[in-house]
């Protein structure tokens, strides 16, 4: 059922012959490039298994969807049994949950938090507001499409999604990570200029560094 749904990716394909961003060549920063060797693949698979089973979510309630993250974390739904736990600082986290609409003021902070997280890192968009603006489609203060500004790996639809939906979304994200398909962070590095351009288009007083380490 999930395969039949259209893939939500509002991003155009990379034009032919375009150069990747300069930082991409920095091996220490960039994740692993696919290697042809068999044992490399096996190691990669093991790494992905570790990554998938220990998701550290940044405790940043960006929107109203974060009210359902607390039931998810506490006794009734208990996300910790899947190895998902929250971390209070972006340095320790590798999953960023955008819980619902994102005002432009918050978008600036979110970009900064996202860039400070160590890669590989993933973005989960929660609720219809992140997908197409939701019920705030005509609001002057919120962004309408999250994947223009951050590389989204998983959308969970609903307004707001129930904790069960969140659990299923996380399970899908884990599957994606195990298969090695959740590569939004690489996309962000490769097309940093494109993302920056989009971000600067709606954040008028841009005063962030080129890249927040």
């Amino acid at each position: 059922m999930r395969d039949e749904l259209p893939v939500l990716h509002g991003v155009p394909p990379i034009p032919e012959g375009s150069q990747p961003h300069a930082r991409c060549q920095d091996e220490c920063f960039l994740g692993e490039k696919p290697e042809p060797l068999k044992y490399r693949e096996a190691i990669q698979r093991i790494k992905n298994w570790f990554r998938a089973n220990s998701l550290h979510v940044l405790a940043y309630g960006t929107g109203c969807g974060s009210i359902e993250l607390r039931p998810l974390g506490t006794a009734r739904f208990d996300m910790e049994r899947f190895g998902i736990s929250t971390r209070p600082t972006p340095r320790h986290a590798n999953v960023l949950i955008i819980s619902g609409y994102l005002s432009i003021k918050t978008l600036k902070r979110v970009i900064r938090s996202y860039e400070q997280m160590p890669s590989p890192k993933w973005v989960v968009g929660l609720g219809s507001c992140t997908i197409n603006g939701g019920m705030y489609w005509d609001s002057y203060a919120t962004m309408k499409q999250l994947d223009l500004y951050l590389p989204v790996d998983m959308y969970i639809s609903g307004c707001m999604p129930r904790p069960e939906a969140l659990i299923e979304g996380f399970a899908a994200l884990m599957d994606k990570i195990k298969k090695g398909e959740a590569n939004g962070y690489l996309d962000y590095l490769e097309r940093l200029d494109w993302y920056r351009e989009n971000q600067k288009k709606i954040i008028h007083d841009w005063d962030l560094p080129d890249y927040s380490w």
Binding site: G10, I104, K105, K108, I131, N132, G133, W137, D138, S139, Y140, A141, T142, M143, K144, Q145, L148, N198, K201, I202, I203, H204, D205
Partner: peptide, 28 residues
């Protein structure tokens, strides 16, 4: 509430929020 706001104050009646969104915030 707003940061880097360059338009007219938004709660004035002549501020058209739909036009503002169409002009400056990309939609899917």
């Amino acid at each position: 509430n707003l940061e880097g706001w360059r338009d007219m104050p938004p709660m004035r009646r002549d501020f058209d929020t739909v036009k503002f969104v169409r002009d400056s915030i990309p939609e899917r």
